[in-house]
Computed example of a mutant assay.
Amino acid sequence: MKHVILWTAAAAFMLGVFETAILSHFHVLPALPDLIIILVVYIALYNGTTAGLVAGFCSGLIFDFLSLAPFGLHSFMFTVIGFLYGMLYRKYNVRRILFPLFLAFSATLLKAGLLFALRFLFGQGIQVYSMMSLSFWFETAFNTIAAPLLFVLLGLFPSAFEVQEP
């Protein structure tokens, strides 16, 4: 499982840099996709709760360093998401297109709910999504569209992102 976590951390760093350094400069986009959350969902689905927890925590720490969010915010969110989606390990055939669409959609809604709960607990320092804002629904749509593409891309490297059982 160590190599999966190392590859996940490397992929999270590359996706985080891609989001913050490249996609953020496209002023045409009203919101940015959260590619790291899709990575965490993928790792959790194909490796279980333990790998989902560790991958979510490490990916969140990396993204916390790359973003201006409070330190630990993404770590917490991605750890919870990694655990919850890891519970689906070996329960469904997720190699199809519709399942990644649904998972990315639900993960984005879960992320918004977690942010709302954290703001309720910790105050105004945490920015939350407005469920009625256009930018939230654009991010949800971008995540939903990007999920099957990222699932296919990560599926090309099963030895790196999936634990090989003996």
Rank of each mutant, 00 (worst) to 15 (best):
A12H: 11
A12M: 13
W137H: 13
V17F: 02
Y85A: 05
S159L: 13
I145Y: 05
M1N: 03
Y42I: 04
L109D: 05
V80C: 06
A112M: 09
R90Y: 05
C58K: 00
A51G: 09
A11F: 06
K2A: 15
L29F: 11
L15F: 11
T49Q: 10
A146D: 01
V94R: 04
E19G: 08
L101M: 15
A112V: 08
V163H: 04
F26D: 13
Q127G: 13
P100L: 02
Q127C: 06
A160G: 05
F57A: 11
M131F: 13
P33D: 14
F57L: 15
L115M: 08
H25T: 06
F105W: 14
C58Y: 00
T20D: 05
A147F: 05
N47V: 03
F26V: 13
F65E: 00
W7E: 03
T8P: 11
L73E: 12
H27D: 13
G86Y: 10
L88D: 07
A104C: 02
F142W: 06
Y85N: 10
D34E: 15
V80W: 01
S24Y: 09
Y42K: 11
A147Q: 03
F13Q: 00
D64N: 00
L121V: 12
V28C: 03
L149P: 00
L61A: 11
I22P: 08
L109H: 00
L121E: 06
T50S: 07
K2Q: 13
G155Y: 14
F18M: 11
P33W: 15
A55Q: 05
F122M: 01
L73W: 03
Q164I: 14
L101G: 00
Y89E: 12
G82N: 01
Y129A: 14
H74P: 01
I97Y: 12
D64A: 08
T79R: 10
F76D: 12
L121T: 12
L110D: 08
S106Y: 09
S24D: 07
M132F: 09
F120R: 09
L121G: 02
F13L: 15
K111T: 06
M14K: 09
A44Q: 05
A55F: 01
T79A: 15
L68E: 02
I5A: 14
I145M: 03
S24A: 11
F18S: 10
F78M: 13
L53E: 06
L29D: 06
L98R: 06
D64T: 02
L98W: 12
L153G: 06
M14D: 03
F76V: 07
L156Q: 14
M132G: 12
W7I: 00
A21N: 08
F63C: 09
G123P: 08
A31D: 09
I22S: 07
L68Q: 07
T49A: 11
